[in-house]
């Protein structure tokens, strides 16, 4: 471990020296981590990709997590990675809209940088209307973002923004995802397959399809967040009972 500090609110940044992973991990994928010296905490923790620079891979996870509290720079973590499917944009998608809520903006940042590197225009919005007014649940701080990301706070479901976008990725609550499906239909008349993806953030005990604790009901059957996700086409949830 090369770094372990609180980025903002309840978001911890954990940077690892992991040359192999730095080559293979793609935005949208994740890692499951544990301290190999103990069974406490018992389960692996989900690490969301934040940034890759050389051989250094930075992830985010909740700041109060016991893994964060214990781990020290220089420690070795046991990772299962890369897991899940990467976010791939259609080659024609020139305008990318990323919508996150509070701390759930974190997994969108690596996706934003990747899209910019591919020559796409990116707008990132912290969607605030559904957030509780408790401490640490405000908008993602602008100073943590690189200047090439066009950043806004407020209404991520604005009709003009949705009309501008060629692709959307959202990271937040079930309420946000329901509202996003409605907003896309209102702004574009139809919710097309492949237009919007949503990130599911559930506990994933195994990451290998062994436990089914991460199963979600979609319009295309029961799927696993760890193997089929962690991002899903919004259209798979738009007509579903969302929990």
């Amino acid at each position: 471990m090369a770094d372990n500090h609180t980025l903002w609110a309840d978001v911890q940044l954990l940077a690892l020296h992991a040359p192999e992973l730095a080559r293979t991990l793609r935005p949208g994928q994740f890692a499951l981590a544990r301290d190999p010296t103990t069974l406490d905490p018992y389960l692996r923790r989900t690490l969301w990709l934040y940034h890759i620079e050389g051989a250094r891979v930075a992830f985010t996870l909740p700041a109060r997590d016991p893994l964060v509290v214990r781990a020290r720079v220089g420690d070795t973590l046991d990772l299962l990675a890369p897991l899940g499917r990467a976010i791939e944009f259609d080659s024609n998608a020139r305008h990318v809209l990323l919508i996150g809520e509070g701390t759930r903006v974190a997994p969108l940042i690596a996706i934003a940088h990747d899209a910019i590197a591919q020559g796409r225009a990116v707008v990132l919005v912290t969607h605030t209307p559904f957030l509780p007014h408790s401490a640490g649940q405000g908008a993602w701080p602008a100073h943590l973002l690189s200047p090439e990301i066009e950043y806004r706070t407020g209404d991520g479901l604005d009709a003009e923004l949705i009309a501008w976008a060629d692709a959307i990725v959202a990271s937040g609550s079930a309420q946000l995802y329901r509202a996003l499906a409605d907003a896309v239909r209102a702004a574009r008349y139809r919710l097309e397959p492949g237009f919007a993806r949503v990130l599911m953030d559930l506990p994933m005990p195994c990451g290998t399809g062994a436990c089914y604790a991460c199963a979600v009901e979609t319009s295309r059957g029961v799927k696993l967040t760890c193997a089929d996700g962690p991002s899903f086409d919004l259209i798979e949830f738009a007509n579903q009972r969302t929990r």
Binding site: L43, L202, C211, Y212, A215, V222
Partner: peptide, 28 residues
Amino acid sequence: RPRAGAPLPRVVETAGGVLLRTGAANPG
């Protein structure tokens, strides 16, 4: 037949392990 499983959360940690309630989520 397929089962979507129990409502979230399905996993709660406790000392010495984890409580799991999947509601028999499976693809059928």
